[in-house]
Design a protein around this nucleic acid. Sequence first.
DNA 1: GAATTAATTGAACGTTCGTTTTATTATTGC
DNA 2: GCAATAATAAAACGAACGTTCAATTAATTC
Lengths: 213, 213
Amino acid sequence: MARTTGSDGEKTEAAIREAAVNLIARFGYEAMSMRQLAAEVGVQAAALYRYFPTKEELLFTLMREHMEGLTEAWEAAKPADAGPIRRLSAYVENHITFHIERRHATHVSNMELRSLSPERLTQILRMRTAYEKELRAILRDGVEADVFSVDDTGLTAMALIQMMTGVIVWFRPGERLSIGEVTATYLSMTMRLVGVTSAGEERHVHEHAQLRA
Amino acid sequence: MARTTGSDGEKTEAAIREAAVNLIARFGYEAMSMRQLAAEVGVQAAALYRYFPTKEELLFTLMREHMEGLTEAWEAAKPADAGPIRRLSAYVENHITFHIERRHATHVSNMELRSLSPERLTQILRMRTAYEKELRAILRDGVEADVFSVDDTGLTAMALIQMMTGVIVWFRPGERLSIGEVTATYLSMTMRLVGVTSAGEERHVHEHAQLRA
DNA sequence: GAATTAATTGAACGTTCGTTTTATTATTGC
DNA sequence: GCAATAATAAAACGAACGTTCAATTAATTC
């Protein structure tokens, strides 16, 4: 029939976003049909179009907000005046924590880029590049301050990001390792990778990671 | 019409495989239509079904052969009697070289797993696990022989593989870096990551990498 | 050179897709 | 409590999808 009792635009929109993230992460954007999404929300397919004009716009919204969330999380976690080691620690910790906590959204943002129109793809990639640039800056500062030993900062940044983001492929909450343990291990791998060998600094890093765990 | 002059089953099948890898890598499995694939090959859609019974079987064939190729390449490159450092070097070098040279096929094998039926997915994952197991064994041997310093071999293996495979995301042939340069940089990052700090061993590793570049 | 086999076309099948339109009902503001 | 608006249902649209089938022609075999 028509409007149902208790229906609320805000709640419906939130339910659509959540269901869409889960369905796209599980089956893929192309494989998820609007009817399937609507059924998951408990609504007819036509109702979705009150909130998102097209399927692609829905995907884009999910991705954009995920990237905005990542950037905001980093801005909040970023140490104001700190050396390269502490800044790198904060970057690794924020990245891993954020990505584990939003595994499904990360999956969507990483896997479904090719379903975006060129303009929207550019927009998302711009946000991603800006975020990655922060890591390159940290690495560059560390190399200049002689606390990191890195051949190629650009290449190292990509390697680190792929290594860290890869966590979502195998990590399952509640299994062998906690988020804190994973973060601590990745922190020590990262520090070794960038050539931080000073025992004092390393001990500091480990303690820092364990405190947060 | 019907059979065309010069038509040849073997050539057509090879053309289908190649076109399919490229199209799936670019647009995704779900987004590629059989008609689009047929057009790329220069044939009608119905002709594809002479070679592959279903679209999914085509995808599965591409993935299985990619994994078989990776395993075979490693079996050929694997040093018979060598220490953990040389075996790890060989693994990294083989992995990166293979994945760069078959970027599109790797993309397909990594991104389209969810389009496989459960049984076929299991089959591909089994092959992948066996391949990754080799790396874990090398790491374990290195830890036991006290040449590697690694907290968690399983976690380190995953981190290394994701780091290395990530190369295909940003690497474009003919740009700033050659395959040899990339491999050499990743080799030194890998060695630092697993805690190989001995100057002698590292020099050996670098020279080895540069020779192959 | 006739018979057989291999390779392909063209048309069609039923299904599902994203999306639009129209009608209908619940809620809100005055 | 009545008008305005917000939220949804139901049905339908044309297009595209994977796949099948019968017909047709090229190549091969004997």
